[in-house]
Design a protein around this nucleic acid. Structure first.
Lengths: 327, 327
DNA sequence: CTGTTAGCGCATTCAC
DNA sequence: GTGAATGCGCTAACAG
């Protein structure tokens, strides 16, 4: 048997579809008897309102579109978890639309959700912000995560620069002077900002090496291998994310370097593994970002007058055993 | 300016809405000139089709609903990642609908997605399978993950029982005879099945203790604390999941027990942490399950005649340093 | 090849 | 308090 529609319910209750709609949506002007009959009929038929039709009629979907890259590791999940938590608490659903690299996919993703969602949460670190702004549907409320510029939408950003500065200062504070930075991909804005923070914290005359990784564990190990091969002297490593730091950690240990005595090591993100391996890092609480993004978006969906805001989230320095010998 | 509709495009291109629809959807019967004019007009207006209206008309949403509990740890994310990967590869979106414990939420979640999705992936380990089957809309194709019974839907299950048996046999093989099981919550079917596998692998006369945890790390540590307090002798621990095993690992080390010499320890799931901490465990590749679930669901959405199938996924035993001293 | 018309399922005026 | 009609935006017959 096919799903019952509002018309089936109306027929069975011997009322009009209008009354069914009113009765089921809790409108005031419905006679108690009518409401009872309607509910009984709906019940008997196992009627469930067709959300698609409903949102077409109301011009409101109670869904928010989430456009994210296919992030590896915990990020993806943490953001989604945060988004979902807030969204479902406020009666919204999440429509996921993942993207690979490349503008075309972003456009596709954005187009695909039009008419299905009331707002958009977009995170596209590898896409040029201006291009992004241009292709975003102007009418839809949106929140951008970690997007430098913003036009007509709210923005939520992690203070990558500040975090990188803090961690670099920490390395200096514990007396390290030959600091190596394993950077992320050059086309990634998080990576760039962290690199900038790193440079900003260093004194002019500092002895510095920078290698580029790709945010993966092997690339962290590879960077260390290269340093060792080139016999570069160093007493500290700041990797642009935890996964690379973990790769570096492994490689350093295998090379017989003591951590933190010979080499102090720090990452960025504070993935769950970091705690277990006692990695000094910067805690970026992505779930929290998701929650805030959803909250902000829903606010601007429900009150059209909301001002776009830009929020900068300052992550915390977490000092652990890879930079300071633990008790 | 508000979003352009198909009618705006039709007006600007001086054709009917039908022609616009045909032109934009690549129908054969459209004069090249007409198509060109339509595309130009759509372009100029920044027209994006309204997916909601489209799916109402087509009775096809190209979206699949995902009903999952608010899983902690990697599970949640891995399943979603797998689902999303397959879904987006085949042109489908994911509509997330998380649930807490309790049937009411499940019902809510299920109702909320009706008319928005072409099929459902449901995972609700804490809900009685029969009750679940009863409340699921009969018409919608669905795939159930880790649900013992199945009625009118495909099923994808991890062989919890087999995995638990394998790991228990492994503990016996390495000579352990006093094996403790830290079980999961009694109302969780995964937990029950793992417990059953554990019992099945043991000889009749085995010396066995079973404690109940709640799948969290602290509960694993608490179980060990209790064992030690009660001075129960044991030389092996099989925890029903990795997180509890990790809690146990911590607690055992703090108590001065050597792993694996004094106590062999095994978990279940193979979360990323397990590899790092060299935990013997059972590998459950959740992303893979997600991928298969999506593939199966989409197949049955696109070909109504698909037979419901039940697939049992056999997880692999991964032996690591917590049961066998590594080279 | 193209335009007209009739729904998809629901909420909502506007009369009664 | 209730029903009949209109439209949300789009696609799919059905005629021309």
């Amino acid at each position: 048997m096919t799903q019952a529609t509002i018309r089936d319910v109306a027929r069975r209750a011997a009322v009009s579809v209008a009354s069914v709609s009113r009765a089921l949506n809790g409108a005031a002007n419905v006679h108690p008897d009518t409401r009872a009959r309607v509910i009984a009929a709906a019940d008997a038929l196992g009627y469930v309102p067709h959300a698609g039709a409903r949102s077409l009629s109301l011009a409101r979907s109670h869904a928010i579109g989430v456009v994210l890259p296919d992030l590896h590791g915990e990020f993806f999940s943490e953001i989604i978890r945060g988004l979902d938590r807030e969204a479902s608490a406020r009666g919204y659903h999440l429509l996921l639309s993942n993207i690979q690299d490349g503008r075309d996919h972003v456009i596709q993703a954005l187009r695909a959700v039009r008419g299905r969602v009331d707002g958009l949460v977009v995170m596209a670190p590898h896409v040029d912000p201006a291009a992004l702004a241009a292709m975003l549907p102007g009418s839809l409320p949106k929140v951008m995560i970690n997007t430098p510029a913003s036009k007509g939408g709210s923005t939520l950003r992690v203070d990558n620069r500040g975090g990188a500065e803090a961690i670099t200062r920490h390395l200096l504070d514990i007396g390290r002077r030959h600091i190596v930075h394993i950077a992320g991909p050059a086309n990634n804005s998080d990576a760039r900002e962290r690199y900038e923070g790193f440079k900003a914290a260093l004194p002019q005359r500092a002895d510095v090496h920078v290698l580029e990784g790709d945010f993966t564990e092997p690339s962290g190990a590879a960077a260390i291998a290269e340093l060792l091969a080139r016999k570069v002297p160093f007493d500290a490593v700041f990797a642009a994310n935890d996964m690379m730091a973990l790769g570096a950690l492994q490689a350093l240990r295998e090379a017989g370097r003591r951590i933190p005595e010979d080499v102090a090591l720090a990452g960025f993100d504070d993935v769950p593994l970091a705690r277990y391996l006692s990695l000094t890092t910067i805690r970026v609480h992505m779930a929290d970002i998701g929650t805030r993004a959803a909250a902000r978006l829903i606010a601007s969906v429900e009150a059209k007058d909301e001002e776009p805001t830009d929020e900068l989230i300052v992550p915390a320095l977490i000092v652990r055993g890879t930079t300071v010998r633990e008790p």
